[in-house]
């Protein structure tokens, strides 16, 4: 009965339906009136958007990019500085997005000439350099003391809901962009580059332009959520904004869900944030080690991510066991 119904739906429809339900659940969290739940929903939306972003360069193109924290951190700072200079909220967020996109496009022109290990090291170095520059440029960025960001207007609950809907908005745009890329020329080209860059170049894929596009897309949404995050928390500093942990966490989320897919990063980010929240609450001292353990587990037992697990096999096995039980009775 169930399998018959599933068979009649178009491929992947169940996944998208579950995804829509999940996003609706996140959007409904302010109705509970529980600010803690809203906070988690904000974190999930924020990391989903970033994991979707990373997916363009890391999932589709297969470039091991670890510069997410640089984009996020720059988004934080550009948004904060713009707001401190009197720009309205949404204009500051838009400016941060544009700035980070331009930054990534220019940087991509240079750094995407590297491959493999050198690209990985280079992209981590970008995080370090941006962090060091921001923390030493004290007159503008406040240096190591950090920066206060003008608080958003309204009650704590209203502010949290506003932030949540902003983050969800970015998540939806990133998701739509992923679908568009996946089905369009760009996604095809990126997958070609993933499989064999030289061959892609030979058959006429403009690899440089495609890679820069993917790199820019991987930065864009990180810049936006960075600026929103800065407005939300009201205070940013270099170590927090350009954290090396963030730069690894985001790829891990995408890998956890399933890189190169649209639903994978959203699934991975949701699972990861919930797990992290659980471990923070219950094993404060061992939080970092447990997350490390999750990464090790992921690498060995879930190489294709959660989406690649054959769930039908579990279902079949359960059915067989039930049938065997009945036969024995």
């Amino acid at each position: 009965m169930t399998s018959g119904l599933l068979g009649r739906l178009p491929a992947g429809a169940l996944g998208y339906a579950l995804c829509a339900l999940w996003i609706a659940l996140l959007a409904a969290s302010p109705l509970t009136g529980d600010n803690y739940l809203v906070r988690i929903a904000v974190m999930i939306s924020m990391f989903s958007a970033m994991a979707l972003s990373w997916n363009f360069i890391g999932g589709f193109t297969g470039y091991p990019s670890f510069s997410t924290a640089a984009f996020f951190g720059l988004g934080c700072y550009v948004g904060a500085i713009a707001q401190r200079n009197g720009l309205p909220l949404f204009a500051a967020w838009a400016l941060a997005t544009l700035f980070v996109a331009a930054f990534a496009a220019l940087l991509g022109l240079i750094i995407l000439r590297l491959k493999g290990h050198y690209f990985a090291i280079g992209s981590i170095a970008i995080v370090e350099v941006t962090r060091l520059l921001v923390s030493s440029w004290g007159s503008v960025t406040g240096g190591g003391d950090g920066l206060n960001v003008p608080l958003m207007q309204g009650s704590p609950g209203a502010v949290a809901a506003q932030v949540l809907y902003a983050m969800l908005g970015v998540l939806l745009v990133a998701f739509a962009a992923t679908l568009a890329v996946q089905r369009g020329r760009l996604g095809f080209g990126l997958r070609c580059i993933h499989q064999n860059e030289d061959a892609a170049d030979m058959v006429g894929v403009d690899t440089t332009r495609f890679k820069i596009a993917a790199y820019t897309l991987s930065a864009l949404f990180c810049g936006t959520v960075g600026a929103i995050y800065a407005s939300w928390v009201g205070y940013i500093d270099p170590t927090d904004s350009f954290s090396i942990l963030l730069t690894i966490k985001v790829p891990v989320m995408a890998l956890l869900g399933g890189p190169g897919t649209a639903i994978g990063p959203v699934l991975g980010a949701g699972v990861f944030v919930l797990l992290e929240e659980f471990f923070w609450a219950n094993f404060l001292q061992w939080n970092r080690a447990i997350l490390g353990g999750i990464i090790v587990f992921l690498i060995f037992f879930l190489p294709g991510g959660l989406l690649k697990i054959d769930y039908r096999r579990f279902y079949r096995r359960a059915a067989e066991r039930r049938a065997a039980g009945k036969a024995a009775a």
């Binding site: 690894i248 790829p251 061992w286 080690a289 490390g292 990464i295 690498i299 060995f300």
Partner: peptide, 27 residues
């Protein structure tokens, strides 16, 4: 076990192991 895997895998794995060692040392 993953020594021939792409850099994304090996780097992420050593980072995960590093998080565990780091946590043990700080505790």
């Amino acid at each position: 076990k993953v020594v021939t895997a792409p850099v994304l895998t090996t780097l992420t794995l050593t980072f995960g192991l590093d998080m565990i060692l780091y946590n043990l040392m700080t505790v």
